[in-house]
Design a protein around this nucleic acid. Structure first.
Lengths: 203, 203
DNA sequence: CCCTCAATGTTTACAGTGTCAACTATGTAA
DNA sequence: TTACATAGTTGACACTGTAAACATTGAGGG
């Protein structure tokens, strides 16, 4: 009953690479971490367990591709959040930060994959890829324009970038892992933390 | 030639549990991530591959134990750094933060293990354990005394705690993974970021 | 039109893993 | 002394990533 009466896929799949990526993304969306097995991906794609190797030299290559897609999505989310007009630099800071964190909370496994050195391989170039850099670039642009409007302290843009990035990354990671326990940091730790950091940005 | 002329260990090892933990800690110190295999631990401890199961129900239990030891060490490091007298709250903030980050950079695999939800198990209690809580407690005490001395903004201690914790955690993680690229955040991102956050703490 | 070939599938195999069950050695308490 | 709980070993199982050998096919050159 397996496939004789089903529409039999031709021997050459045609778009297996895309199917593999999509399947893997779906598995990431199931929020079981990024430690899925390549064989399970193949199983769900209904191909043999070695078929993915015709499209990716190893499991890591697939993970890198997924991570870069994640950075595309992150950047898109940030740009979307910033689209509306007439926001003050302060608004833009909050909107960007919340959108960033929200991306992580919505796609926890993908987010962790994006920032997992093990997944990205020892000599990872993922974070130097333009697709990853430009996600951070959005944050940088917010800070820069805030400085230009004299709302944020003029000065070392690098320091502010580092502070904001570390802050949102830290909040995202801690939040994903459910570590922002109320007894440690209260009920609305994310907003509170962002507000505290914002005080340090303001001119 | 294996062990006939060596001092033969008695059948009952006597302190295998401790040896396993120490061996695993040594392997973590080799900075190859916390994805070592239990069998390799057993090999180094020169016992059979199943021997660890007499002391830990599964690999995860060992990882949890290691993580808790990590929190002990982290707390000890923070307290050590704060021991000298006569520091201003600002000094104490920097010293604590730098010590925290330094712990992570000195023990990257251990640090990642401590904060890996996968390693700690799905229903992890690690971070609610007193040993983990009290590490964060050091940071909290620094902020509280800073407020009392009117150097830090009086107000929501939770928010400041969240901001500082997320900041040092984020900086530690990014730094461990080598993501604080100069072209992104300059040459001294850590100090710069901490300085920026400190501005938000000061009264 | 046929025939070859590269691309892309499948099958089989291997070493290595976490874990379990069965077995074995031994220090200790009855 | 003897029984037993404790703590070791051995062997097995299902699973993994990956490589090699094999099979099927679509496309392009005679």
């Amino acid at each position: 009953m397996s496939e004789s009466n089903e529409t039999k896929r031709p021997y050459h799949h045609g778009s297996l690479k895309k199917v593999i990526v999509d399947t893997a993304l779906n598995m990431l969306a199931e929020n079981n971490g990024w430690h899925f097995t390549l064989r399970e991906v193949a199983r769900r794609a209904e191909v043999s367990h070695a078929a993915p190797y015709k499209h990716f030299p190893d499991k890591n290559s697939l993970l890198v591709e997924l991570a870069l897609i994640g950075f595309d999505q992150l950047r898109a989310g940030l740009l979307m959040a910033l689209k509306s007009e007439g926001m003050t630099p302060t608004d833009r800071f909050f909107v960007t930060a919340k959108s960033y964190i929200n991306f992580g909370l919505t796609n926890p496994s993908l987010y962790k994959l994006m920032f997992s050195a093990e997944a990205n391989g020892a000599s990872s170039q993922v974070h130097l890829d333009g697709r990853a850099m430009s996600a951070l670039g959005v944050l940088l642009e917010v800070l820069e324009s805030g400085q230009n409007q004299k709302v944020f302290k003029r000065g070392n843009l690098n320091d502010q970038t580092a502070a904001c990035w570390a802050q949102v990354h830290g909040l995202t990671m801690l939040s994903i892992d459910g570590l922002l326990y109320e007894q440690k940091v209260g009920v609305n730790a994310i907003d509170g933390a962002l507000k505290t950091l914002l005080e340090g940005l303001k001119a």
